[in-house]
Design a protein around this nucleic acid. Structure first.
Lengths: 108, 108
DNA sequence: TTGCCATACCTCGCCTCGCGAGGTATTATG
DNA sequence: CATAATACCTCGCGAGGCGAGGTATGGCAA
């Protein structure tokens, strides 16, 4: 997995996941790596700063919770603003991937 | 067009174009911007360093030519190594776009 | 009890690279 | 003669992935 490709889609990926249901950081790492069949391999040094960035932008919102195990976790939910951004970025992604597919089709 | 998305696909795009036929830099800028229906808006400050990078990597090869107009241009062709890289990156792109589409589908 | 692994959070610094801005020179147009 | 288009180039800023490192807790096995 190339870092540039990851960088390009990390925001909508995370927004999309926490739009389904609240997730905490460690869970997101596992979730993404599992559900992408190994295409993505998120690192924690990537995810946590990214979560903070998205929260600072007002696209997600975190709250601390104590699990049954007694461990504290920070769960993130998408905001109204975040949903708007997700839709925009998803649309952008569609336009881009269409354009790229057209250009690369003969080589795939 | 977001810069991260561009960064992610600029290499295979250029390789793909010069794999079709030799092109010079200024021509590539126009070609990409036209053929992508405005999705891409390459800047020269982006392209020329990129061409140098790809040539340094041995993926493309440039040669100076004098046009009928008398203007000198540097035409780039893809190398054997470049074709290999293009195929790899095109495959990577396919795997990634499939994964992303699956994750974002409900939002597109 | 003592390790050790998994969970769960975090930061720091390196490195890469798009691109805005700026530069040079030539040819075509009006 | 001035302006636009062609055609090449560089510099410096800023953003962000990630390798590496750190802290703390829970659970399990020896």
């Amino acid at each position: 997995m190339e870092r540039d490709l990851l960088r390009a889609v990390i925001d909508p990926i995370i927004l999309s996941l926490v739009a389904e249901r609240p997730l905490h950081g460690y869970q997101i790492v596992k979730e993404v790596n599992d559900r992408s069949n190994g295409v993505f391999r998120f690192k924690e040094g990537t995810l946590y700063p990214c979560l903070h960035r998205l929260e600072a932008a007002g696209w997600i919102e975190g709250r601390w919770e104590v699990a049954d195990t007694g461990r504290t976790r920070r769960y993130y939910e998408i905001t109204k603003k975040g949903r708007k951004v997700l839709n925009e970025e998803a649309g952008q992604w569609k336009a881009l991937s269409t354009a790229v597919n057209a250009l690369l089709l003969s080589h795939v």
